[in-house]
Structures are given as structure tokens and as C-alpha cells.
């Protein structure tokens, strides 16, 4: 069974008198443990596709299936619940909660899931160690560098063992060393935790890590290359 399946997916936006076809009849299937990069220029529909797969945005038409469940018709509460249990997000701007420490940010999703405090602590500490932040667990986001914040965000995304991680331009705000380190981390987690990764990027270095590279232009998939 595939982790993600999009069938004839469309997402149109109306801007003034124009209709922008952000996703134009996209068909896509991504299997478990895949490491996929969505590439393409700005406005090609990468983020819109990630948002549709993550249940953050409703498609205009078509179907989206995640972990065997059709999600395009779910209400807000069900979509939130689906994201909570099946999807981890890594954002371009890290988007950590500023009032929580690094450890609390990692624990956040587990807390919402109702995981016990001791288990949360064990798992978050183990993951912070895995991403190289074992001594920084009590620091607030403002006390961490961009690369460190992004590693906390990665730990947060995978700590509850989601079926897949959606990363939207995760290296866009990072220097090259941090970007290389982050991609190494993604690959390692993909292999170790068997988590599906779908990464949108237009960074060639990121694409070089992908085992499947999907190219998008004007809301359409124009290339789909298995490496």
C-alpha cells in the first residue's frame, strides 16, 4: 500500500479575474520509505502539493489518500488528528514555538497525543542526541542558531514516528554546512526509522540526496525520476 496517493488533483486560486492553476491534474503515488524531492521553480506548485498531501489545504478537485485514508473530504478536526498521528512537518522558517525549550518543542506533538511524561522525555532526549543537540535541550529557540533550530524542528517532526515527513524548503535559510548536515540527517532518519520523506526544494544540493526526483512546472508533474 502506498503512503501517499493523489488522483487527478487540482487546486485553483482565483486572483482578481485570473484563475491560477497551482495544481493541474496531478497524479502521484509515493510508497513507504521513499525519499522524494519535489523540485521546480517558484510557483510550480511544490508547496501547494505538500499542503494538499499534509491536509493543510483543500484541493479544488481530485482525491488525496494518506496511509490508506482519503483525506480531501475530512473536516478540520479530523485533518488535525490525521496530521497529529501520521505526518511530521519541517518548515522553511523552522517555526518552533518560542516560549518552549528545545526539548519541550520536540515533546509538543507527543503531549498533544497524550504520551506519558517519562516516555516523552526519553524519546525527545534520545532524538535531540541523535540530531546533535544533547546539551541544548533547555534552550529556547531564540538561543539557538538557524541550523540548530532546524534540527530541533526535524526532531519534532519525527519524534512520534509519523508515516511521513513533509519538508518545505528545509534548507532555504541554512548555510551550506548546516544544509549538508540536515540532509545527512534526513537520509539517516529515512533509513533508520523507515520514514517516508517528501521534500520540496529548488536547491540542487538537496536534490542530489533524493532517490526519487519529481519535477514540477506550472502545477504539473513534468518529470518523475527514480535514481
Amino acid at each position: 500500500m502506498s503512503t501517499v496517493c493523489c488522483i487527478d488533483l487540482c487546486r485553483f486560486f482565483v486572483q482578481g479575474e485570473q484563475t491560477v492553476r497551482a495544481l493541474d491534474h496531478v497524479n502521484l503515488e509515493i510508497d513507504k520509505r521513499e525519499f522524494v524531492c519535489l523540485s521546480g521553480p517558484s510557483g510550480s506548485g511544490k508547496t501547494t502539493l505538500l499542503n494538499a498531501i499534509g491536509g493543510l489545504d483543500k484541493p479544488t478537485s481530485g482525491e488525496v489518500w494518506v496511509a490508506g485514508q482519503r483525506i480531501d473530504g475530512l473536516d478540520k478536526a479530523d485533518l488535525a488528528n490525521m496530521r497529529l498521528h501520521h505526518i511530521g512537518f519541517v518548515f522553511q522558517a523552522y517555526n518552533l514555538i518560542p516560549v518552549l525549550t528545545a526539548r519541550e518543542n520536540v515533546e509538543f506533538v507527543m503531549q498533544v497525543q497524550g504520551v506519558t511524561a517519562s516516555e516523552r522525555r526519553d524519546r525527545s532526549m534520545a532524538l535531540l542526541k541523535e540530531v546533535g543537540l544533547e546539551d541544548m535541550e533547555e534552550r529556547r529557540p531564540a538561543q539557538l542558531s538557524g541550523g540548530q533550530q532546524q534540527r530541533v524542528a526535524v526532531a519534532r517532526a519525527i519524534v512520534s514516528n509519523p508515516a511521513m515527513v513533509l519538508a518545505d524548503e528545509p534548507t532555504a535559510n541554512l548555510d551550506s554546512v548546516s544544509a549538508e548536515h540536515l540532509m545527512g540527517l534526513f537520509v539517516n532518519l529515512n533509513e533508520k526509522h523507515q520514514t517516508t520523506f517528501i521534500i520540496s526544494t529548488h536547491d540542487q544540493r538537496v536534490m542530489s540526496y533524493a532517490r526519487r526526483l519529481i519535477g514540477m512546472v506550472d502545477g504539473r508533474i513534468v518529470t518523475d525520476e527514480i535514481r
Partner: peptide, 16 residues
């Protein structure tokens, strides 16, 4: 607003 968007993306329901 932005932070609320993030925690909603992470799985917190609007009601919560």
C-alpha cells in the same frame, strides 16, 4: 497568527 498556523499544522485542532 503564524504560530497558531504552525501548531494547527502539527495537529492541534482549532477548538483546542
Amino acid at each position: 497568527t503564524r504560530e497558531f498556523g504552525v501548531v494547527m499544522a502539527l495537529g492541534l485542532s482549532p477548538a483546542r
